[in-house]
Simulated scan of single mutants.
Amino acid sequence: MIEAPMDAADTDGDDDADRKVVEEERAELKEFIKGLSGDDIKSGSWFTKLCAHAMSSYTEKVDWQYFQERYKGVPPDAIVDQRIKMASRYAALEGGLSAGAYTATVVATLGSAGGASPATVPAAITTMMVDVAYITRLQLHLAYDVAVLYRVPLDLTDPDDMWKLIRVAFTIKSGEAVREGVTKAVPALVRPLIRRFYSGDVLAAAKALPVVGKYLLRKNIIKIGIPLVGVPLAVVLNRYTTLLAGRHAQAVFRNEARVIELAENLSKRSRHPQLMLWAAWLVIKANRKIADDEALLMRHLVRVVRERHQVVDEQLANLVDLDPAEVWQRIDAEPGDLSDVLDAADRVAAVDGDINAREKAVISELRDRCCRV
């Protein structure tokens, strides 16, 4: 199976060259689909097998250095934008090729009254599965590329990281957020189709790859649900669902990169790394609920402090209930200028947006104790 990264530089936007690449990949995927059983498709196990094929050698080849060699000196935002556009272009080309086959096989079989299910037609199954597998692999690769470009570490041998990639690539548990973003990313004429694609139940976070396979197959049935407009519908859905998936991956991984960068900068500037961790946790715990970005920041802050300063605070790691008095005691016992701790607290409070009243109260107390004459 072809697993080479897509690159606009390889074709220079040449329609014929791009189409040839897509046709070659479809031919490879057709052989993969032929190796599946009916049970593989029905149960969703095809997705498990595709993941193994799609990501194994790809992750060995594609890393941050790979992109640096191809796009030396280009900021990640610019590269990500080009990758998303290129993936959307390939998706649209593949949609056109698949939709043409739908017209020839599915429509003739179904007839005007609807007829039997497309799943009873072997040729239609192959055609549909090549399309679904192509878009699935394309969006997995795109999400992985975005993570690599923003230098967000993903170890796909770790089930949690693999599931994270799948959630991002297919906007699992984020359907509502994607639907809300439709109005900005998709032309008005196309919005009803895209909304229909993302309508219905959002997949629950059951970490079972076959469940995802069934979910993706169900989502793509819409492409053959309106056979009279099969060609434009498949092109439009492939293009814009890939565009939205790419934008979603960019939003998720760019935000994580922002948080990682903040953690690294705080650790780099800190003269009191252990005390900074306690102050950061005090600010985060000022609210009853911990925001996702706050939890992410604390996780990376602990990691970079350990790596840069060789500081591991077992007491903090085992803490259940934080007593503010203990933090104040630690601060009062520390001599000298603690402006770095105060600065870190300010930045931690702002990581998830505007600083609220509870956080302001904690920072005010910190300021009184840290600003010494």
Score class of each variant (00 low, 15 high):
136 T>Y: 00
35 G>T: 08
313 D>S: 05
300 H>P: 01
239 R>A: 12
265 N>A: 03
207 K>L: 01
356 N>R: 01
231 V>G: 11
303 R>T: 12
219 K>N: 13
149 L>H: 13
351 V>T: 11
70 R>C: 08
274 Q>G: 15
134 Y>G: 00
78 A>L: 11
231 V>E: 13
159 P>Q: 00
342 L>S: 04
219 K>C: 09
358 R>G: 06
147 A>R: 08
351 V>L: 02
214 K>C: 07
152 V>G: 08
280 A>P: 05
212 V>I: 08
218 R>T: 11
48 T>H: 10
121 V>G: 05
172 I>D: 07
227 P>M: 12
203 L>V: 04
148 V>F: 05
26 R>F: 08
146 V>P: 10
287 N>R: 11
346 D>A: 05
189 L>I: 14
122 P>R: 09
16 D>Q: 14
116 A>L: 14
243 L>M: 13
278 W>I: 05
260 I>N: 03
11 T>W: 07
106 V>R: 14
23 E>G: 01
62 V>Q: 06
148 V>S: 09
248 H>W: 15
277 L>F: 05
59 T>H: 02
191 R>M: 15
279 A>S: 15
100 G>W: 01
288 R>T: 08
171 T>P: 00
326 E>G: 03
24 E>A: 12
6 M>V: 09
80 V>R: 00
187 P>S: 13
172 I>H: 09
50 L>K: 03
13 G>F: 08
195 R>D: 13
91 A>E: 07
207 K>N: 00
336 G>C: 06
151 R>V: 03
47 F>E: 03
157 T>V: 10
308 R>F: 04
52 A>V: 13
314 E>F: 10
346 D>V: 01
